[in-house]
Structures are given as structure tokens and as C-alpha cells.
Amino acid sequence: MTAGLPRISSAAAAPLPDGRSAGPRHGVRRGIREVLDYLGILPFLLFIGVFLLWPTCTVIVGAFQDAEGRPTLDNLVAVAQGTYLEAFALSFALSAVTALLGAVLGGLLAWSVATGRRDSALRRVVAAASGTLAQFGGVMLAFAFLATFGFNGLVTLFLRDRLGIDLFAGGAWIYELPGLALVYTYFQIPLMVIVFLPAVEGLRPQWREACLSLGGDSWAYWRHVGFPILWPSFLGATLLLFANAFSAYATAKALISQASPLVPLRIGTFLTSEIVLGQANLGKALAFGMIVVVAATTVLYALLQARSSRWLR
């Protein structure tokens, strides 16, 4: 038996079920089968409809309705000013800063672990650790930082007892925005590694060889080959990090218990506290704002990803 045989038979067999010319009886049976095919994916579609599309539509429609269900733009106008606008600005700034920090540090880390061998032990450990810290951390990371930089944290005590430095001279920063930025950066770095590592590993050693044999040095290689190829991936990954920080709720909630300076925390208070009459849909308007920001970021990311796949993979 030749190696090619199964492929040929599969190619010939593939069009058969649909391509066969059918008499009237076959037509009826084909119709029934087609209906059965669609019935087969119905459970999945129903499930998606109830638990993904319906809630999303509830948010979007609700953002444009007043308490009595009449169409209005008042909610969106309300969340585009005052403390809500400040929350958006702060969320935006925090996400942008941590995305940039995470992208640079994570990008460097990805570059230094890139070995070219996909099954090396170092790579496995880095991939597993990155996945854990980037995607499944949440509350646990907040506790990790309280154990490190909290009032009785390891680093706090070390600096105070050994070096005489008081980390809290400037206030309880770990429970405020600077602490949040520190933890966010902490989970952005591994996410960057996950997203950016394939791109770095897509750089072929032959390109460096070609550059060197043409008389260029390491700098010329990065200036003319490495960076131009990697920058769409880098920018795309940074956008993904931004969206990631923008949507994060768990870490912020666990770290900051009193105030609600960020948009996700604001939305959370709408769900848990008594809602002022007539403001029921303000939370939905905030959520709608988040959808817009995150969706726009994701679309940009997809475009950049398409561009970078020209050279990589």
C-alpha cells in the first residue's frame, strides 16, 4: 500500500454525500438529513444564545433605555462626565501604563527564553507559569503582593529591619493605585510572554546568518530585520495587554476594598449595592463603554496580527 492512497480515496469520497444526483425520494431524504444536521448544532446555539448573546444584548440595549424602557441617550451622557469619566480615564491610564511596562519586560523575557526548541524544559516551565500567573491568578495575586509588600510582607519587613527603609512612609500605597499598577504589571508580563513568544521564535536563524554574511553586525540585524518583523506583533500584544488590564476586576477588588476608582469596580457596585431610583441602567451604560473600548482594541489587535503573520509562521 502506498502512502498516498488514503489521501486520494478521501479526496474522491468527500464530495459524494452532497454531490450525488438524487431522485425525488433521495431529495426528501436529503432534506430530512439537512434538517437533522441543523438540529444537531441547535443545543450549542441555544446555549450560546442564552448565556452569551442574550446577556450581551441586555447590556447593549439597556444602555440605551431609561428606567421605563424608553429609548434614551441619558445613560451614556451621564457616564461620559463627572466621576464616571474620571473612572474611565483612570482605568485607561492604568491599563496603558501597565500594558507598556508589561510589553517591554515581557517582550525581553520572551526574547531571552526563546530557544528555538519548542519542547525544552525551560520553555515548558515558562509557558505553564505564564499561563497560571496571567490568566488564572485574580484574587490570589492580590494576596501574593500583600504577602510581599503589605504591612507585614516579606520585602517590607526585610527593608525595614535590615536596611532601615520604610516602604509605607508615603502612605498605604499597596492598597491604592501604585499597588494596583505593580500587581497589574505582574500579570501583564507573563501574558506578554504567552502572546509574544511565538513571534520571537518565528525569527529564523537564517535571517541573522544572511545579515551577518552581508557584513552587518548584531545591531544592524535588529535595526533592519528583527524589529521591523516583530513590531506589529509587539504592538498587537501591547493592545491585548491593554484590553486585559482594562477588563480586570478580581485583583482590583481584592486589593482595594473601600473606594471604586476603576470602571470594573464601579460596575461591581451597581450590581451589589442598592440602586438609586432611575439609575438602574447606568451600570449597563458603563458596561457598554467597556465593550466599546475592549472590542476596538481587539479589532486593532486582529488587524496587526494579520499583518505580522505575513513573515512569521
Binding site: P55, T56, V59, I267, F270, L271, M290, I291, V294, T298
Partner: peptide, 15 residues
């Protein structure tokens, strides 16, 4: 991936 969990939960509460 593009719908933050915090947004999803707003719409899920009535469901």
C-alpha cells in the same frame, strides 16, 4: 475573549 467577565455578569444577573 472580547466580552469582559464584569460586563457579562451585568447581563447575566437577570438570567
Amino acid at each position: 475573549l472580547t466580552i469582559p467577565a464584569i460586563v457579562l455578569v451585568v447581563g447575566l444577573a437577570p438570567i
